[in-house]
Design a protein around this nucleic acid. Structure first.
Lengths: 213, 213, 213, 213
DNA sequence: CATGAATGAGCCTTCATTCAT
DNA sequence: GATGAATGAAGGCTCATTCAT
C-alpha cells in the first residue's frame, strides 16, 4: 500500500520521515520516564508501533537515536529562547528583555516537559558519550541569559561586582527547577504564578521593575 | 566511639562494618560518575576491593545498597542544613540566617559533590523504586529554606505576594545548579565567590542586607 | 496441514516452530537425565544447537519451557490412553479393555521413556510451581484406568468392597514402576513379558481371563 | 559410637551427636519438600538452628550430608522389612508372610513419608553421585519381596510362568505409589483400607487367601 | 523500507565452600 | 566444637545488535 514506487524522484510520501517521528516521540516519552539505560529498544519500537529492526534501519542504533533526539531538543530550546529576545526596534526595556527570556524558558519547559526531564537527568553525568551535546545545549541556553545580563551591566543596572556568568547559571538553574517542579507537583497552577516568583528573584540582581536602585 | 574495642557487637572487630563502608564509598563514586544503571556490581566490588558476593552478603542486592546509600546521604544533608540554622540566642538577623543556610548548602555540595551529582540525576525520575527517598530528601532540604523564608515573611521583610514554597524551591535549584557547576567548571574558585552571587539573588526576595523594605 | 507451504502463518517458513521443537527435544533429554534443577539453560541451548538467548526469545524462561514441555507430555499420554479404550462397537470384553489400557501405558512409557522419567521425578514434589500440571496428568491417566474399573464394577466383576480409586492408583504405580524398570535394567526384553506380569496382577482384582468370580 | 573421643572422658554430653541429628532432621524435611538441588545449606543450617559452618564441620559438605542421610534411610527401611518376615517357628502361612511384608512397607512409608518422597524423586535419576546408594536400597527392599514370592513359587502357589523379579518390582511400585498417594491425598484414611486393596492385588499372583496347594 | 527471529556478551544473583576467630 | 564473614564459580536472564527474508 505504501511501497508504491521503489524508485522515485524525492518525496515518496515521507513514510520514512513519519516513522522517524514516531520513534522520536516514543523514545522521548520512555526515556523521560525511565532514563536512557532503563529504556530498551524493544519498548521504543513497541510504543512507536514498528518492528525492532526498524529502529536500526532508521537510526543505526540506540545511542544514535538518542543523540538525534538530543540534538532535536537543543535546536528547539535554542530557537525558542532566541525568539524571545525582543528586537532592538521594539524598544523594550532591558529588564523586560531578561524577563521575557526567563518566561520563555518556563513556557518551553511546560510544553516540553519530557525533554527537560531527560536533559536534567543527563546534565550532571560528565562522562557520557553525548555529554558534549548536552553541555552545548546548556551553554546555548545560559548564553542567551548571559547576553541579557551583560546588556544590563553595560547600562550600569547591575551590581558592579556581579559575575554575569555565575548569575546566569543561577537564573537557569532556578528556572528549570521551578518549572519542572511546577509540572511535577502543581501542574494546574497558571504559568503566571511561576513566572512572577522568578521575576522577583531576578530583581535581586537588577532591582525592581522601573525605578533605579 | 565505634571502632574502639576490637571485639564488640558480634564477632570479629567491626570487620563487617568496615566492609560496608568500603562498599558505600565505592558505590557512591561510581554511581556519581556513571549513574545507577550503568554501574555494575562487579565494578563496585572491585573498587571496594572485595569479592562480588560480598555485596550480596552485606546488602542483599544492588538496589538495596543504593537505597542504603541514599538514606545515608539524606541524613547527612539534613543534619548539615539544620545545623546551619542559627540558634535564637545567637541573635542573628533573619536575613543572615537564610544566608547561612544557603552557604551551608553550597559548602555541603562542595564537599559531597558525588552525592549531589547522584541525587540530581535521580531527582527528576518519578518512577524509580527509590523516588520516595529522593523526594523526601528534597523536601527536607527545601523545608529548611522555606522555614527561613517564613520567618522573614512574618516580620514583613518579604514581598507580601511571595509564595514561600515556590521561592524556596527556586533558591534550592539555584544553589544546587551553581554549586555543581562550580565544582564542574571552576573548582579552584573560592566558595565565597559562589556564595556572594547567591546572596545577591536572595536579595531579590528580601532586599539588600540592611535596609528595610 | 502445517509444514506444507513454506510461507504461512507469519513470515519465514516455520523457522520459529522448528526452533521450538529442537528446544523441546533437547530439554526433555537433559531433564530426564539430570533433573530440572541440575539442567542448565546453556546445556539445553547447546544440545538444541541454538544460542542461549533463543530459549528466552521463544519461551521466556527455563520454567516456562519446562511447563510447556510438561503440557505437551500431558497431551501425548492422555491421547494415547484414550485411544486405547476399545470402542463399544468393537464388542470387546471389559477385562480385555482394562488390559489394553494397561498395555498402552507400558508401550507409551517404552517409547517416551524420558518423559516418564521426568514426570516421576517431579510427581512427589508437592510444592513446585508446576505441580498442578503434573498432578493433572496423573489424574488424567489414572482416570482412564478408573473408568475401566468402574465398568467392571457395574457388571459385578469386581470384588464389591474394592475401592476403584485406590485400585487404579495401584495399577498406575505398578505400570510405571515396572515399565521404567524394564527400560532401565532389561531393555532387550519384549514388551509382552512385561505386559503379561501386569495382566496377572490385574487378575487379582478381576479374576483370571474368562471365568466369573 | 563413632569417632570416639579426641579428648574427654567419653561422653562429653554428646553435643556433637545432637548437632548431627538436628542436621539430619532439618535436611530430611527440607529435601523432601524441595528436592536436593533446591535445598540450600543455609536453609538446612537455619532449620537446624546452627551456623552454616557447622554443617561443614560435621559432615564435610552438602553431598556428604545427603549421602549419610540416604544411608541412614536405607538401614531403616531394610531393618523394618526384614523384621516383618515371620520367623519359621511362627508357622505363618506363606501368603500371610508376603502380606505382612507389604503391610510393613505401607506402614513404614506412612511413618517416614519424607524419606520415601525423597527417595522416589531420586530413584529414576541414573546419573547422580548417590545413585548406587539409592539403587541398593531399592534392591534391598525389593529383594525381601522377591524372597517371599520365591517361597510361594517353591510350593507351587504361584502361576508357574510368573517372573518373580518382575512381579516383586510391580508389588513394590504399587506399594510405594499407593502409600505416598494416601499420605498426600487422604491422610486420614486408616492404614487398613490401604493395605486391603494391596492385598487384593497380590491375590492376582497367588490366588485368594484360602486355596490350599 | 520494514520485519522479527536469532544471537551472545554481559549483568544480577545464588550458593557451596573456606577460614580466621 | 562452632561461627559467620567472605569468596568466586556458575546460573538465569536481558537486551543491543545482526541479518535473511
Amino acid at each position: 500500500m505504501s511501497t508504491s514506487t521503489p524508485r522515485r524522484g524525492k518525496a515518496s510520501g515521507g513514510r520514512r520521515e513519519a516513522t522517524r517521528q514516531r520513534l522520536y516521540d516514543a523514545a522521548l516519552s520512555l526515556i523521560a520516564e525511565q532514563g536512557y539505560d532503563a529504556t530498551t529498544v524493544d519498548q521504543i519500537a513497541e510504543r512507536a508501533g514498528v518492528a525492532k529492526g526498524t529502529v536500526y534501519y532508521n537510526f543505526g542504533g540506540k545511542e544514535e537515536l538518542y543523540t538525534a533526539l538530543l540534538e532535536w531538543g537543543v535546536s528547539r530550546l535554542a530557537e525558542t529562547l532566541h525568539a524571545a529576545i525582543p528586537a532592538p526596534e521594539e524598544g523594550v526595556d532591558d529588564r523586560e528583555s531578561l524577563t521575557r527570556v526567563l518566561r520563555a524558558g518556563v513556557v518551553f519547559i511546560g510544553e516540553h516537559e519530557e525533554l527537560a526531564r531527560m536533559l536534567m537527568a543527563e546534565a550532571w553525568r560528565t562522562n557520557r558519550a553525548w555529554y558534549a551535546t548536552v553541555h552545548q545545549l546548556r551553554n546555548e541556553a545560559i548564553g542567551v541569559i548571559t547576553g541579557q545580563l551583560e546588556k544590563l551591566a553595560e547600562r550600569g543596572r547591575l551590581r558592579p561586582d556581579l559575575d554575569t556568568g555565575l548569575a546566569s547559571t543561577a537564573l537557569f538553574g532556578m528556572v528549570v527547577t521551578v518549572a519542572l517542579n511546577w509540572r511535577n507537583l502543581q501542574p494546574e497552577r497558571p504559568v503566571e504564578d511561576i513566572h512572577a516568583t522568578l521575576a522577583h528573584m531576578a530583581d535581586g540582581l537588577i532591582g525592581p521593575a522601573e525605578g533605579p536602585a
